[in-house]
Simulated assay, not measured.
Amino acid sequence: MRFLLRVMLATALVNLAPAVAQTPKNAVASSALQKEFDGFIEKFRTALKTNDSAAVAGMTRLPFMNDSAIRDAAQFRAKTYGTFFTAKNRACIQRGKAFYDRDQENNDYYSVFCGQHIFVFTKTPAGFLFTDIGVND
């Protein structure tokens, strides 16, 4: 009985090994990418500190989250900024740590977690832009 249990355990470990070996490692940003993001987030945080919704809109990919109802800066300020950029969230983004990762299409992005929201900043051909607000679950 013990022998059979050992064989089953060994078989399970052998079958599990390839899956563990294929688990992706945590992505690490290059120093150039990190430097570019640092410059972007410094400007973004300055805009938040002064509660400058126009500046934030100017650093946002529009239409925001591919929503045609938020296709320009005025709509972003009216429909998104006041709802999600509360004083609490602005303070959180200003002091929060940004975490680097890559999405399924291999796009570089950083996320800042603030309570129930995740604020996402993605590398685009135009540089980094604010691109998404997700739910922190």
Results as ranks from 00 to 15, higher is better:
Lys88Val: 14
Val56Leu: 02
Gln94Met: 14
Arg61Asn: 12
Met65Ala: 02
Asn26Gln: 13
Asp67Ile: 04
Thr86His: 05
Phe64Ser: 00
Arg77Thr: 07
Ser30Pro: 02
Ile93Arg: 04
Ile93Val: 13
Ser31Met: 08
Asn66Gln: 12
Phe76Gln: 01
Thr46Phe: 14
Asn89Leu: 11
Ser30Trp: 04
Asn51Arg: 11
Leu48Gln: 04
Gln34Asp: 10
Ala32Val: 13
Arg77Met: 04
Pro24Asp: 05
Ile41Met: 10
Thr86Ala: 06
Lys35Asp: 12
Asn51Ser: 11
Ile93Phe: 04
Ser31Asn: 10
Ala69Val: 00
Ser53Ala: 14
Lys79Ser: 08
Leu33Glu: 10
Asn26Glu: 13
Ser31Gly: 06
Arg61His: 11
Ala69Thr: 14
Lys43Pro: 02
Leu33His: 07
Asp72Ser: 07
Thr86Ser: 10
Gly39Thr: 06
Glu42Gln: 13
Ser53His: 03
Asp38Lys: 09
Gly39Pro: 05
Lys25Gln: 15
Ser31Asp: 11
Phe37Lys: 00
Phe40Ile: 07
Ala29Pro: 03
Glu42Thr: 14
Asn66Leu: 07
Leu48Asn: 07
Ala74Ile: 11
Asp67Glu: 07
Asp38Pro: 00
Ala54Ser: 15
Lys35Glu: 15
Ala69Ser: 14
Met65Thr: 02
Gly58Phe: 05
Ser30Cys: 07
Arg90Tyr: 02
Phe85Tyr: 03
Phe37Cys: 01
Thr23Arg: 15
Ala47Lys: 03
Ala91Glu: 15
Thr80His: 00
Phe44Asn: 06
Thr60Asp: 02
Ala47Phe: 05
Gln94Trp: 09
Gln94Asp: 12
